[in-house]
């Protein structure tokens, strides 16, 4: 059976802390290759796995340079770029706050209070060194990167169309467009709308089910690196961009900065959709690139 989008095979595996679904116009072998690429990203960038690049950096990089895989290095480079362009709102060293609030496990990490993204030094030989006792977490960006690697693996196998969805971080490629339903920010089995996507990545972040109380106040896993405060409004943010890693990172910035992030979205040629807790869109940003004429909001 060939559907309108030509997708013939759909598989789902537990990965990256969620259920990852890959659908494509290809063979089981193609899908295996895509999952293998994502497993590799998980192995390299997991905060929990003691043998990952991230765990090795967190243990040693404040004392000596740690050599990481080129993929990890690329993600770190991108994270640094997001930090620079957002004046530190995006900051992977906020991991220490996530540990404090129990979003990340304490084991094997020493809490540290000083330092920021500016203290991460990357050299061209893929070595990483921290100028302070830091810990980093790539949770806000690695899932998107994994989706991009899966798409690259499918394309590398000459697959012409497909979609990879890692718990809401997704990317579609091929000539047909896919309809993606966006969950209601507060009632996740309701949909608040749908987005038609073609040749594009999209990520959605919401905090309703992730926020928790810490010393009487609500906290959430999306942090403003400048203040260490979390954004825990009951909204959902959807960003579309060319690459899923970009969409993934930008959702966190839209959460914190809302309309003030428009300039950055334009730089990355990204679109954004902000849903309020009643499910209605309160802000839409259309990238000023070639998507504009096709962007429709009834």
């Amino acid at each position: 059976m060939r559907s309108h989008s030509g997708i013939e095979i759909r598989r789902c595996r537990p990965l990256l802390g969620t259920l990852v679904e890959i659908a494509c116009q290809g063979s089981p072998h193609d899908i295996d290759c895509a999952f293998t690429a994502m497993e590799k990203v998980q192995r390299l960038m997991s905060f929990h796995d003691p043998t990952s690049d991230v765990a090795r950096m967190n243990r040693h990089a404040s004392r000596r340079p740690v050599k990481v895989h080129p993929w990890t290095w690329r993600v770190l480079k991108s994270a640094q770029e997001f930090s620079r362009k957002s004046d530190g709102v995006f900051d992977i060293t906020m991991a220490r706050q996530l540990v404090k609030w129990d979003y990340l496990p304490r084991s094997g990490t020493r809490l540290c209070s000083a330092g920021s993204w500016r203290d991460i030094v990357l050299d061209d030989e893929h070595n990483v060194q921290f100028r302070h006792r830091l810990i980093v977490d790539l949770g806000g960006i690695a899932k998107g990167f994994a989706v991009d690697r899966a798409v690259a693996a499918l394309k590398n196998n000459s697959v012409t169309a497909g979609i990879v969805n890692a718990g809401g971080d997704l990317r579609t490629f091929g000539s047909a467009s896919e309809v993606v339903y966006v969950r209601h920010p507060v009632e996740p089995t309701r949909t608040a709308g749908a987005v038609r996507l073609r040749e594009r990545a999209m990520a959605t972040s919401g905090v309703y089910f992730e926020r928790r109380k810490y010393r009487g106040k609500y906290v959430g896993p999306i942090l403003d690196g400048r203040t260490g405060q979390s954004a825990c409004e009951l909204i959902s943010v959807t960003v579309a961009a060319a690459e899923c890693m970009i969409a993934d990172a930008l959702t966190k910035l839209v959460f914190t900065l809302r309309e003030k992030v428009a300039g950055l979205l334009a730089q990355y040629r990204a679109d954004a959709l902000l849903l309020e807790r009643n499910g209605t869109p309160s802000w839409m940003f259309h990238s000023p690139c070639d998507t504009r004429d096709q962007t429709r909001f009834d």
């Binding site: 659908a23 969805n165 809401g168 949909t191 990520a203 919401g206």
Partner: peptide, 13 residues
């Protein structure tokens, strides 16, 4: 008809 969903999803715990 819902094929693709974006947003808070199931964890694999």
């Amino acid at each position: 008809d819902i094929k693709n969903i974006s947003g808070a999803t199931l964890s694999c715990r």
